[in-house]
Nucleic acid binder design. Structure first.
Ligand SMILES: [Zn+2]
Ligand SMILES: [Zn+2]
Ligand SMILES: [Zn+2]
Ligand SMILES: [Zn+2]
Lengths: 196, 196
DNA sequence: CGTGAAAATGTGACACTATAACGTTTCTCT
DNA sequence: AGAGAAACGTTATAGTGTCACATTTTCACG
């Protein structure tokens, strides 16, 4: 039901900051302040494609949430989204929290939205769904999240699991640190392999 | 302040189910229903050692929380701990939630307690603190958590981070699945490399 | 010893995150 | 059109975590 591999849009994973979107892009980390318009279009077009493909209904509420998520490379809390729904919506009506959560569940089922559990926040998958374990790289400075695979992890996990006699069902990797752009702008913090 | 490597107690990482603790132990996954008494003693002794070593005060409240965490291989929610403090305490007084969180923060600073962010739950570190990125293996059936390293991850993470221009500060890996004991007792679920 | 500063805890209020239960609307398919 | 399913609305409530400030405990120092 979830996690199906989905093609790219335009040959570009649709969240990645492509050449149209920003010049100085370090390996997929969007430049803060870049022209986000093309990103947004790509995000939304990609999501529409996924929904079409899977026969899922992209209703008004869902589209609204999608647009809000697509308008940012940062993970948003459910209540952030809710606030933006109020200010975005022409009617100015305030949906109940459950409405937001329902939409988020829907998108998560389709693998189109990920949840950053360390922050209770949600963001659009930049790939439109994927089978692999995709680590999330979260910048502590600018709050940007990107997804970048870690092939060694893919390789090692099944082996290690077998060794332990453990059957993995899902793997969540969250890397917190400082993105290239923020690093360029300030002193970098001490590199620590976190144990917390 | 956190994440310092600390020696073992007795030559055994103090959460691991050792030979005294359970006969049939698959690579550190404690047998459900095993005699937990020795585990608990080892946990507490280990924690005392860490506190002595670091000059941290192991007060009454902290010891109480420690005992509660040590009494289980399962992660506990802050409010679970709170309830147990009520029923455990001779006075039967109910501390405020903040008290529990303060204690948990304290132990986390020392690297003695980890937080499972996918579940808002906490558990005792079985090593008494460690520098490496230590994946958490959470059994969906019995809720047991264990820590087992993934050496390839240690190797690959810095390289990949450098590639991305990203400076990691902390890494959290949570693997959810079915532990060997539960697997032995039932059908195993489909193995999926999670994307959610 | 006292005593003062720092650490730890208590107290009450409150913010934030998420879900339950049930009724109504909208869509789809025949 | 009509039935059934899916989506959404409404209200209430459960669960998780923090703030601000008062009080107590601990510990080093004179
Ligand atoms: Zn993704
Ligand atoms: Zn950044
Ligand atoms: Zn640990
Ligand atoms: Zn199990």
């Amino acid at each position: 039901m979830a996690c199906q591999s989905v093609g790219e849009v335009d040959g570009t994973p649709y969240g990645a900051a492509g050449p149209m979107c920003s010049r100085d892009v370090s390996a997929g980390f969007p430049q803060p302040g870049h022209d986000h318009h093309p990103c947004r279009l790509r995000f939304v077009a990609g999501a529409e494609a996924v929904c079409r493909e899977k026969g899922a209904r992209l209703t008004r509420v869902r589209r609204q949430v999608l647009e809000i998520l697509a308008a940012s490379h940062r993970p948003l809390g459910a209540y952030d989204i809710l606030e933006q729904m109020v200010s975005t919506s022409p009617s100015g009506r305030r949906p109940a929290p459950i409405t937001v959560y329902r939409v988020l569940d829907f998108f998560q089922e389709l693998g189109m939205v990920h949840r950053l559990s360390s922050r209770n926040a949600f963001f659009l998958c930049s790939q439109g769904g994927h089978r692999q374990t995709m680590p999330f790289w979260l910048c502590r400075e600018c709050d940007t999240v990107t997804e970048a695979s870690l092939p060694e992890l893919e390789m090692a996990m099944p082996r290690r699991a077998a060794e332990l006699g453990f059957s993995p069902i899902s793997v969540q990797v969250e890397v917190e640190g400082v993105c290239p752009h923020c690093r360029a702008r300030g002193r970098d913090p001490v590199m620590v392999e976190g144990c917390r």
